[in-house]
Simulated assay, not measured.
Amino acid sequence: MSEESLAWETLSSETTYTCEGFDVITETVRLPDGTETEFDYLSEGESVVILPLTPDDEVVVIEEWRQPVRRVNYGLPAGSVEPDDEDLRTAVARELKEETGYEAGTIDHLTTVEPANGFSDAVFHYVLAEDCTPTGEQDLDYNESIRVGTTTVESLRGAARDDELRDGRTLLGVLYYELFGQ
Score class of each variant (00 low, 15 high):
4 E>Q: 01
4 E>K: 04
6 L>A: 04
7 A>L: 03
7 A>W: 00
9 E>Y: 10
10 T>N: 08
15 T>N: 01
15 T>F: 01
15 T>R: 00
19 C>M: 11
29 V>E: 06
32 P>V: 01
32 P>Q: 02
32 P>D: 06
32 P>L: 08
35 T>E: 15
36 E>C: 00
39 F>S: 14
42 L>D: 15
44 E>T: 03
45 G>M: 02
46 E>C: 15
47 S>D: 15
50 I>W: 08
53 L>H: 06
58 E>Y: 14
60 V>A: 00
72 V>E: 14
75 G>P: 12
78 A>L: 03
82 E>F: 13
84 D>G: 11
84 D>I: 01
91 A>S: 08
97 K>D: 10
97 K>W: 05
98 E>L: 09
99 E>M: 11
100 T>P: 00
104 A>N: 06
106 T>F: 03
109 H>Y: 15
109 H>A: 13
111 T>N: 10
111 T>Y: 07
112 T>I: 10
113 V>Y: 04
114 E>S: 13
117 N>E: 13
118 G>V: 04
121 D>R: 09
122 A>W: 05
123 V>N: 03
126 Y>W: 12
126 Y>I: 07
126 Y>L: 12
129 A>L: 06
129 A>F: 11
137 E>P: 07
137 E>Y: 14
140 L>D: 05
141 D>S: 12
145 S>W: 10
146 I>G: 10
147 R>D: 15
149 G>Q: 03
149 G>M: 00
150 T>F: 01
153 V>A: 09
157 R>T: 12
159 A>E: 10
169 R>P: 03
172 L>R: 03
176 Y>F: 09
181 G>W: 12
182 Q>T: 07
